[in-house]
């Protein structure tokens, strides 16, 4: 590992002032330290942002929750208001990693964790995300767990965060602070599709610091479901964050976001539009799923994800309807 300077920042201004091109912010380190050991990340300086005053969850008068970027994943899932109002967010975070890692990981770090594509993590291999212009060996290689939607000729990686999928369904906003001041970035604009610049996961500017995530209230039952290769402690093959307001058997409103299928959490707006105002039936749900997945381009070895995503949409929404 390349030697680095380590500094603890006490304020956001201090963190920004210390940050240059060769600096990385350090949250819990559960992704960054791993990538530094693999040689994927080689920062000359780490600025520790876990002591910034961003470690609280506040309930706003609007009913929104403001979750500080330094809040540990486990504290997010233990918080009474989050548990009461946002089951899918709690379930999403709890479905990720392990009890130990969730105690260490921060909300900011969880949002900005890098893809688990095996070529990205192996510095002996080419990878457009790690080294732009070197190519994407995953397209013809090992890609059974990579994207079916929104990918490009440069990159077919998926975003690994479960939490981000729930935040996409919740219409959350990422609050940041950069050299140009403060920004509020809707989650839908925060993560990028790879296009011809897969080296950029998000629309953050270099050195821009995530300070909090704001989650507006949601008055619908919700849940998160994750399919993976073992029962616990594994990344998603496909996951879903869903909420539905079903009255007299009719879908008044709904939210659907998919994980494990694209370079960013995939908000299934076509499926949502198809369902609103329609009776909650298996046929309508399958129709909604098909509308959404019509845009999919599975790779040689991951067409199974189409079926998984479809079944997840149908089953999860039916379950939410039964509870109404």
């Amino acid at each position: 590992m390349r030697p680095f300077a380590y500094e603890r920042a006490a304020t956001a201004e201090e963190a920004l002032a210390r940050c240059d091109e060769e600096t990385r912010y350090l949250g819990g380190g559960t992704n960054l330290v791993d990538l530094m050991r693999l040689g994927v990340e080689r920062p000359a300086r780490l600025v520790d942002v876990t002591r910034l005053p961003h470690d609280r969850i506040e309930e706003r008068s609007s009913g929104a929750l403001r979750i500080g970027a330094a809040v540990r994943n486990s504290d997010l899932t233990a918080h009474p208001a989050v548990r009461r109002h946002h089951p899918m967010l709690v379930q999403a975070v709890l479905s990720g990693a392990s009890g130990q890692i969730r105690n260490q990981a921060t909300v900011g770090g969880n949002l900005l964790q890098r893809t688990r594509c095996s070529y990205f993590q192996d510095i002996t291999k080419p990878c457009n995300k790690r080294e732009p212009g070197t190519g994407c060996p995953a397209i013809d290689g090992e890609h059974h767990n990579l994207a079916i939607l929104g990918h490009s000729e440069s990159c077919v990686a998926t975003h690994p965060s479960d939490m981000a999928v729930a935040l996409a369904a919740l219409d959350a906003t990422v609050l940041t602070r950069g050299r140009g001041g403060e920004r509020a970035i809707p989650l839908a604009d925060f993560y990028r599709l790879p296009g011809s610049h897969p080296e950029r996961d998000t629309t953050l500017e270099p050195g821009e610091l995530v300070t909090a995530v704001e989650v507006p209230p949601l008055a619908m039952p919700s849940r998160y479901r994750k399919v993976r290769e073992r029962a616990s402690f594994a990344f998603a093959l496909v996951s879903i964050a869903a909420a539905a307001d079903v009255r007299d058997g009719v879908v008044r409103d709904c939210r659907i976001a998919l994980g494990g299928v694209a370079h960013r959490p995939w908000r299934a707006r076509r499926a949502e539009d198809h369902l609103r105002g329609r009776p909650l039936t298996r046929e309508n749900l399958a129709g909604a799923a098909d509308q959404e997945l019509a845009a999919a381009h599975p790779l040689r070895d991951n067409a199974y994800k189409l079926r998984l995503a479809r079944n997840l949409i149908v089953r999860t929404l039916l379950e939410l309807g039964e509870r109404a």
Binding site: Y6, L26, G28, G29, T30, V33, D34, L46, S74, S98, G99, Q100, I101, N103, Q104
Partner: peptide, 9 residues
């Protein structure tokens, strides 16, 4: 709190 010492700098 329980934590993985291998990932903690």
């Amino acid at each position: 709190r329980r934590a993985n010492a291998c990932l903690a700098l």
